[in-house]
Design a protein around this nucleic acid. Structure first.
Length: 499
RNA sequence: GGCGUCGUACCCAAGUGGUCAAGGGAAAGGUCUGCAAAACCUUCAUUCGGCGGUUCGAAUCCGCCCGGCGCCUCCA
């Protein structure tokens, strides 16, 4: 068991502090997942990558991790303050959009995007949570929770909804710093005030709506739950009344997490989560990612359409620590691609060395150097998930391996192999744990054609017909591959296709 | 109006008081190669948005100013 502390910034106390599981060595972790009304974008995945890294570090420290990440498959009105049905529902809007026409109903739409989401998740080599609870599967619990809040005076019923009574929870605002409830309203545009609300900031726990595409029966009539209640209920159902760590994107601080705290703590009477972590939004080309400006990237855009190596995308998303804005550019992705390929080269060399017969020479110095770098990588991650430094340390390790390149002994190969495995456990950028996320499975016919050309080039080379050899190489490159000549013969690599 | 965050070389970026600044990309020179690619070696910020201040000492602390970005409203 490691003596290290795992330091993480805590949004609640606004300081970096050690992550301390209530039960030592067992982290109970809830990470807010996506609403599945369309494909998740790379910004979403930066948040989920943060959660993934936390799990990896915790396991590297020898902890057991109970990791739950929800999937929100219920539509919620886009304007939560609007009491009538004038607000447009995300799910409903998605169904009516061009892409949505293929779905028979919202349920199918949600299922489709939930599956697409999981596929992208695997592409990025993210650890799967132990559970992916869905909001629609926890309707009973949500209704019970709302009932209890009404009974205890923390919520009240109006003709159109059930609202949480902010005045019943004086600490509302402690996470976001929006402690002045009246100031909440000042900057808000277009607030439609529901006269039946006691306070404009009161948020909905249940919406009555008999026309809604997704509705359930409740003591307050047919309708659907408020956005915030699902996470309170699911987190507590699987992780207990007080969880160790709760994560999400920075936008969730307010109102989502603030409201979760209010509901949960009113339900149980004690602290909902001991540590809060929020991942900053990423930008693309220096601007906020938005569909309107066309700088909106999904994993499938980059990987399936543009041929990016998914592990390179993962690497790119790790170049800047989660707490700072990451400005994603194609250059970032290209840089990441060369880094990931460098690791691949290390693996090739390690395999090669392992095929040699033992040299009988000690690899101790080599091993110590790599061990030190592994420790420094882990140190960096334990220091508020400093991925920039972690990647730099890992990169130095590749330098150690590549320095000796083909001269690596069998023993060093063994050490290198082991180091690469451990670094991969930590960073996840060498190999995917998912077979279905392999990078080069598209166009394998092309690949065999390129391999044939590579053999022909090799033959031309041995016959000293360099003109032909160069022409063949150009052809291979035109097909999206490159040839790397090594002492053991040529190796074919797929080019990223990024320009 | 409230809350917050950032400004380090051509680009990305670490670094929060004391070897006057990690790492990557790009670029340049060299080694290797039939030539390339990959890899290796070398070079590449006396300087950290600006101006003041605190200090023996600051990129790092304080103040002001300039500039970027974000949240407070569906959003990771």
């Amino acid at each position: 068991m490691s003596q290290r502390e795992f330091l993480l910034y805590d949004t609640m106390t606004r300081q970096v502090k050690p992550l301390q599981p209530l039960e030592p060595g067992h982290l109970k972790f809830y990470s807010c997942g996506p609403t599945v009304y369309s494909y998740a974008h790379i910004g979403n995945f930066r948040t989920f990558l943060t959660a993934d890294l936390i799990c990896r570090v915790a396991r590297a420290l020898g902890w057991r991790v109970t990791y739950v990440s929800n999937i929100t498959d219920v539509g919620h009105l886009t304007e939560d303050d609007v009491a009538d049905a004038t607000g447009e529902d995300k799910m409903q809007r998605a169904l009516q959009s061009k892409e949505g026409e293929q779905f028979a109903n919202v349920w199918e739409l949600a299922d489709y995007y939930a599956e697409a989401f999981k596929a992208d998740w695997r592409k990025l080599n993210l650890n799967e949570p132990m559970l992916w609870p869905k909001a629609t599967q926890h309707m009973r619990e949500q209704i019970v929770a709302v009932e209890k809040l009404i009974e205890t005076g923390h919520a009240y019923v109006t003709p159109s909804a059930v609202y949480f009574r902010l005045s019943s929870f004086p600490e509302y605002g402690k996470l976001s710093g929006n402690l002045n409830k009246d100031s909440l309203q000042v900057g808000v545009r277009d607030v439609v005030v529901d006269d039946s609300k006691e306070h404009p900031g009161d948020f909905a726990l249940w919406k009555r709506d008999e026309k809604h595409l997704m509705q359930w029966f409740s003591p307050w009539g047919w309708g659907f739950p408020g956005w915030h209640i699902e996470c309170s209920v699911m987190a507590m159902a699987y992780l207990g009344e007080t969880i160790d760590l709760h994560a999400g994107g920075e936008d969730l601080v307010f109102p989502h997490h603030e409201s979760e705290i209010a509901q949960s703590e009113c339900l149980t009477g004690h602290t909902f989560a001991n540590h809060w972590i929020h991942t900053r939004f990423l930008q693309v080309d220096g601007e906020k990612m938005s569909k309107r400006t066309g700088n909106w990237y999904t994993v499938r855009d980059l990987v399936d359409q543009q041929g990016a190596n998914p592990l390179a995308l993962r690497y790119a998303l790790m170049t800047v620590p989660y707490g700072k804005t990451l400005n994603f550019t194609m250059q970032t992705l290209r840089d990441a691609t060369t880094a990931v390929e460098r690791y691949a080269e290390c693996e090739r060399l390690a395999e090669l060395a392992l095929k040699k017969s033992p040299s009988g020479q000690s690899a101790t110095a080599f091993a110590e150097e790599l061990e030190r770098l592994y420790e420094e990588t882990l140190d960096a991650l334990c220091n508020d998930l400093n991925t920039s430094v972690a990647l730099a340390k890992g990169f130095e390790g590749t330098k150690v391996i590549l320095r000796d390149a083909t001269h690596l002994t069998h023993e060093q190969g063994q050490v290198a192999r082991q180091w690469l495995d451990r670094i991969n456990d930590l960073l996840g950028i060498l190999r995917s744990q998912y077979a279905d996320a392999a990078t080069g499975d598209r166009g394998s016919a092309e690949e065999s054609a390129a391999l044939a050309l590579m053999d022909a080039r090799q033959k031309a080379k041995s016959e000293k017909d360099f003109g032909l050899a160069d022409r063949l190489r150009s052809e291979i490159e035109a097909m999206g591959f490159e040839v790397r000549d090594t002492p053991e013969g040529p190796v074919l690599r797929r080019l990223s296709g990024l320009n």
